[in-house]
Structures are given as C-alpha cells and as structure tokens.
C-alpha cells in the first residue's frame, strides 16, 4: 500500500516538474517590485513637478519629458528583467535543473504574446497622444500575460495576474491616479508575492 501512495506522489511530482517551470525565485519578484517603485518615483518627479501634492493632477508631458519617461521605462524594464533572470538562474543552479529547456521556452512564449501585444498597443496609443491610458493598460496586459503563462509555472502566478487586471481596470477609471496604481501593481504586488512565494517554496 505504502508503495502505491509513494508511486502516486512521484507521478504527480514528475508531471509537475516536466510540464511546469518551477525554478521561479521569489526574490525576482521582490527585486522587480523595488525596481518598479524606484522607476515610478523618477517618473513621478518628471511628470508631476511644480504641482500641488493633494488630489487629482494633470500629467505634464513636454517632448523632453517624454524622452525622459521612455528612458526611465526602458531602464526599469531592463533592471527588473535582468534581476529576475539572475535570481531564477540561482534557483535552477541550486536545484540542478537546466534553465533553458522546453518548459522555460513554453513559459516565455505564452508570456510574450499578450505582453508584446500590450507593449505595441501602448506605443501606438502613446504616439497618438493618449498618455493617461498607458499605465492602466500596461497593468491589464501584464495581468493577461501572467494568467496566460500561469499554466506553465507555479499556480500562484494566476491570481497575481487576475489582481493586476482588476487593478488596471480600476486605474482606467481613475485615470489621474495611473502612476499610483502602476506602483501598487508593479511595485507592491511584486514585492508581496515575491516574499510569499519565497516563504512557501523555499523556506
């Protein structure tokens, strides 16, 4: 009897390990979150200078500011992805698992489809002058990407994705607080989930 229970456990374990990317590190969530918060702070400094600090505000976007903002966005993205890759590599090294295998590829492809779609949609909207919608839309598309990719990695990613989508929709309604919601979604949520995952999977 014992042996059969063990068998079932092993079957489940192998199915999981062979079909899902499990080397995701909680620290990559934390580092991405911190990076996002720093990025949001600089963006805030750029956009909302010389305004009163309470209540609804208008974003000030001169062409000069826009270049700055895009620069901040790209830097934030590179640092967030870079640190994520770094921490995840550490985990797969520790687990003695190959980092670049079919699970990783499947995860990245399914993450990329909504993400690249969203990125392009945002760039198009930005070029047409719809600035306010960008922050909420990045949250929505990022959430969709996570939900889509969650089938190929740890299941918690799904609820993180759904939370990001809801947050994005709320932000779309309160468009003046876009940056605030963006900081919550990309900053605080990442940090929270990162710590939670780290505790749950790698005590």
């Amino acid at each position: 009897m014992e042996q059969y229970i063990e068998d079932l456990k092993e079957i489940k374990d192998i199915m999981n390990r062979s079909s899902r990317f499990i080397s995701l590190s909680g620290w990559s969530g934390v580092s991405a979150g911190v990076t996002a918060l720093v990025g949001a702070y600089f963006a805030y400094q750029t956009v909302y200078t010389n305004q009163n600090y309470l209540g609804y505000r208008q974003a000030q976007l001169s062409p000069e500011n826009l270049v700055w903002l895009i620069g901040i966005a790209i830097t934030t993205l590179i640092i967030a992805i870079g640190s994520g890759v770094f921490f995840t590599t550490q985990v797969s090294k520790k687990n003695n698992q190959p980092l670049w295998d079919s699970q990783t590829k499947r995860l990245l492809i399914n993450l990329s489809i909504p993400l690249i779609t969203g990125g392009m949609a945002c760039l198009i909207l930005l070029s047409k002058g719809f600035v306010g919608i960008i922050a909420p839309l990045t949250l929505v598309f990022y959430g969709l990407a996570l939900v889509n990719a969650s089938k190929y990695t740890l299941q918690e990613i799904r609820s993180l994705g759904i939370t990001e989508i809801i947050l994005g929709l709320i932000a779309m309604h309160f468009i003046g607080f876009g940056l605030l919601f963006w900081s919550i979604g990309f900053g605080l949520l990442h940090i929270g989930y990162g710590i939670f995952m780290q505790i749950k999977y790698r005590p």
Binding site: D7, E10, I11, I14, M15, S18, S19, P98, D101, S102
Partner: peptide, 18 residues
C-alpha cells in the same frame, strides 16, 4: 517506467536528455 509515462502524459514529446 512509471516516471517516463508520467512525463509523456503531460507533454507532447520529451527528449531523451530531458
């Protein structure tokens, strides 16, 4: 053998190395 089948059940195909 049980392990091999478990992996093949949830993947279209798996390489020898994997």
């Amino acid at each position: 053998r049980l392990g091999i089948m478990s992996a093949l059940m949830v993947n279209d195909s798996v390489e020898f190395k994997s």
